[in-house]
């Protein structure tokens, strides 16, 4: 959908001879182990053929490294207030100026990546977990389970995400985990729908009937035969939506219902900078850039993952 030019024949043409080269020497040795490696190699080749996906990967890895090494990169303590130096414009000491309490803007953006990574990754993992379990049950067992799960999913699907999240957070109080929880509560329905429909088609495949005929139990059939063959759309959804989760978290903090205001976090910084538009623009430009690059990074990677896992979906 993005750029048809990135996967034209010359690129995929390069992939094929390489595979053949691999195959000849490997033919004699242990077959199954090598086959797995090659499958992943193929996936990686398809991913790497999408240049935008590589850009996205660089952005995402950059974000992860920033989050892990924040104490080493940040020039100042993100929480340290300096009331003699509030709202200072960018200088050699503070590359992106200081905020209303004299805290270093750059350091706060760097530390903000930690909240982004935690919320983005954990909320998506939780969303996928709930969605996959319920979607698999609905799709595999059908009938009553299907109707019940899908009608409940309808309810959560119809809820506007932000409004739902705000209500959950009002109950639990502000903080990182309430945000993660509320995003998962209003996100799982889409995953359950996706997985259910791919389980429905996988369920009737010959290999599933064969596994059952050979005496495999329900759990084994679901875990070993159905899930591996129906999980691709969910994985693609997950990669795309890490960025969406980061944006949703920043939106909640921007509205004053996300993480607490003293925490260095992008949405908080943007909310603080909102009153200074046109006066101290450096207060909101850097955190804006951080949110945009993070969101774009995961979208581009998601694009690449889609091309790699399911070329038919393009």
């Amino acid at each position: 959908m993005t750029d048809d030019k990135t996967t034209t024949t010359p690129v995929s043409g390069k992939v094929v001879p390489q595979q053949r080269k691999d195959r000849t020497p490997a033919a004699g040795s242990a077959e199954p182990a090598i086959k797995v490696v090659k499958e992943w190699q193929e996936v990686w080749h398809r991913f790497a053929a999408n240049k935008l996906a590589l850009v996205g990967l660089v952005l995402v890895v950059g974000l992860l490294l920033t989050a892990v090494f924040a104490p080493l990169i940040a020039p100042h303590d993100p929480l340290k207030q300096d009331l003699m130096n509030t709202l200072k414009p960018p200088s050699g000491e503070h590359l992106f100026g200081t905020d209303i309490l004299g805290r270093d803007q750059l350091s706060r953006v760097i530390y903000g990546s930690r909240i982004a990574v935690i919320v983005g990754v954990v909320s998506i993992v939780l969303t996928l977990l709930i969605g996959v379990v319920l979607g698999a049950i609905a799709g595999y067992y059908g009938r009553f389970y299907d109707t019940l799960t899908m009608r409940v999913a309808d309810v959560f699907f119809a809820f506007p995400l932000l409004i739902g999240a705000i209500i959950i957070i009002t109950v639990t109080g502000r903080g990182v985990w309430p945000v993660v929880l509320s995003l998962a509560i209003f996100g799982w329905a889409t995953v359950a729908r996706l997985l259910r429909s791919s389980v429905l088609s996988a369920r009737e495949m010959d290999y599933v009937h064969a596994a059952r005929a050979l005496g495999a139990g329900h759990a084994r059939v679901i875990l070993r035969h159905i899930l591996p063959n129906s999980i691709a759309p969910v994985v693609i959804y997950g990669t795309f939506n890490v960025g969406t989760a980061v944006v949703a978290e920043a939106s909640l903090s921007y509205l004053g219902v996300g993480v607490s205001p003293e925490v260095p976090e992008w949405g908080n910084m943007l909310a603080a900078g909102r009153g200074f538009i046109g006066v101290y623009d450096y207060m909101w430009t850097l955190p804006s850039l951080a949110v945009v690059l993070t969101s774009l990074g995961f979208i581009f990677v998601g694009d690449g993952v889609r091309d790699a896992l399911d070329p038919k979906l393009r």
């Binding site: 920043a250 939106s251 949405g267 943007l270 538009i277 046109g278 804006s288 945009v292 979208i299």
Partner: peptide
């Protein structure tokens, strides 16, 4: 369009206001 889809609403709003 590829770049725009990565922009959160509040960033667009602040850019517009500015």
């Amino acid at each position: 369009t590829t770049i725009l889809v990565g922009f959160p609403t509040f960033v667009i709003g602040m850019l517009m206001l500015n």
